[in-house]
């Protein structure tokens, strides 16, 4: 699986596509990303959709609370992709 940096870059790119005006450059990777970037539930679901389609990683709904920050999400994806 991809290394942390590549994965982080990939996620930020996906967020940019979904919410083009979100300020991903200044995102604190340990803050709640939905709050920081003002992503609504639809944006978040679309992010999970692209992760599922492009990385073949299916994140179940019960795990949403484990992926609230960018760092958590990267770690989570790495862990289950391994």
């Amino acid at each position: 699986m991809k290394d942390k940096n590549t994965l982080t870059r990939f996620l930020l790119e996906q967020i940019q596509t979904i919410a083009p005006d979100s300020d991903t450059d200044n995102l604190d990777p340990d803050e709640d990303m939905r709050d920081e970037l003002d992503l609504d539930s639809m944006d978040f679901l679309r992010l999970l959709e692209s992760i599922s389609k492009q990385l073949s990683v299916n994140i179940p709904e019960v795990d949403y609370n484990k992926i609230t920050t960018l760092n958590n999400m990267v770690n989570y994806i790495q862990a289950i992709a391994r």
Partner: peptide, 14 residues
């Protein structure tokens, strides 16, 4: 409902 669905078919409470 969502348990068995991939993200692209999941529903939101809205």
């Amino acid at each position: 409902y969502n348990e068995t669905q991939p993200p692209e078919s999941r529903l939101l409470i809205n």
